[in-house]
Design a protein around this nucleic acid. Structure first.
Lengths: 257, 257
DNA sequence: CCCCGCTTGTAAGCATTGATTACATTATTG
DNA sequence: CAATAATGTAATCAATGCTTACAAGCGGGG
């Protein structure tokens, strides 16, 4: 119904789309200078332009308002043209999702690279925070990837691969945590699912509009989300055994000094 | 894209729709006997029939396949007829959502009534389990209520009221838990959000198709979900102080005897 | 009782959409 | 440079949400 919250940062520069399933690598002419851009029979890089326009509409008007005709209109092209590049609307949206997923993956990696490599719990939390942060800054991207109504997720090798890669990354983290005796539960898959469901739920509640009744800016919502994440991560984890044997000491309370 | 997982139990008996916003209470003729039902200019109780048909389509074909024309067709009525009862498609879906929400609320209440009234943590867990159970048995209902794209949630007093009532119910539970010293965190709102986001995330992951790659029956998925819920609830809670002072004992491990 | 009016249904039509087909134009490359 | 594949256009189709003008049934006041 209501459009999604605005994308706070719009990344419309669509470069490096070379490796695509349905499109073989092909040399491209330089983009037409904006003044001379008028009415070229061939667009130049219509595929990329369509993805960008689709994302733009989704971000500003809401996902359900994306129509291939409107996308074509904005790209200055006939209503049938997009079907030269995408078998159907789903294929177009899937392409948008693939790009979004790549960026999401990149942010996860970056966050993990900055985290303390010796503290797997901190890494776990960092991934969760990156998830939340990315979803809040790119609600449309997140909505497209997660709600798989508009895309063909299992049909996209790229989406499936990135997804499983992220999960394995987290599971590896949790295995290390378990070995270090930092987990209350011995079932890392269970802990993994708990964390995933938590951040997924928070992010989805946001894009689904469940926080609108709070009437607070998104930044404040995110702060609250991070507090929830911290609480759950702390609850699931055991504090590091302080060199000296100190069985099950109290977890540090970070909110009540 | 893919239709939602089938509704395992379909409740199509739509009675007691008396209190509606857009429709004043009105005496109804008895429903036509099924054999003699043929071609009556006036339907009898079209409004209820439309809601039932809309839900039926959503459950079997997927939410996005619901069209008011198809709904009208199945109700044996002209394409314009539904607009006599619902201002637009959104109003129709909102009516479906209202009914779904009422049933959801009823199940929550029932589950809580069966739970140990003296153990607020058990009550908290029971509400979570009821949420999961209901969402798994009625994925379409859940999807319609939670993903608020097809409905006007804030515009429906009934939906808003039920929603806040459920939240207050849980918050009351957590207040009792806090008073009894059963919570690790002192911020009940935070705990409440953690629990809500967790079960919401699990249920949404299910309806969004995130468990399809598991290739296991829904019952097994639900078992796993319950294990996650138990883990998190246990982690968030403190065990009851066993009469004798016993500061911070290990939580019972339910998986490794 | 019966006519008048309100409700509820129908019929027809509008604009928009996803998708297909036949055709036109450009790019590539042998 | 010409053949061929790639990429765009134009026209068209069926389906949809929704509106408007009209018809059928029901019910209450004379």
């Amino acid at each position: 119904m209501r459009p999604l919250p605005r994308e706070t940062t719009l990344h419309l520069e669509v470069r490096d789309l070379s490796s695509s399933k349905t499109q073989t690598m092909r040399a491209r002419r330089p983009a037409p200078s904006s003044t001379e851009a008028k009415r070229r029979y061939h667009h130049g890089d219509l595929r990329a332009a369509l993805i960008a326009e689709a994302l733009s509409i989704a971000a500003t008007e809401g996902i359900e308002k994306v129509s291939v005709r409107e996308v074509a209109r904005r790209a200055g092209v006939s209503p049938g043209a997009p079907f030269r590049h995408f078998a159907d609307k789903t294929a177009l949206m899937t392409a948008v999702a693939e790009e979004a997923m790549d960026r999401f993956r990149a942010e996860i990696d970056a966050a993990l690279a900055k985290a303390d490599a010796d503290d797997p719990i901190a890494g776990f939390r960092a991934v969760g925070r990156a998830f939340l942060s990315w979803a809040m800054r790119n609600p449309t991207h997140f909505a497209i990837i997660s709600s798989r109504q508009a895309i063909d997720f299992p049909g996209s090798q790229r989406l499936v691969n990135q997804n499983t890669a992220i999960q394995e990354l987290v599971d590896h983290l949790l295995q290390k945590a378990l070995s270090a005796g930092r987990l209350r539960s011995g079932d890392t898959r269970l802990v993994q699912l708990a964390g995933r469901a938590l951040v997924y739920g928070l992010a989805r509640m946001f894009t689904d509009g469940h926080f609108e009744s709070w009437h607070v800016p998104a930044t404040e919502v995110e702060t609250r989300m991070e507090a929830v994440l911290d609480l759950v991560v702390e609850s699931l984890a055991k504090p590091p055994s302080d060199a000296t044997t100190n069985p099950n000491p109290r977890p540090r309370s970070r909110r009540r000094p």
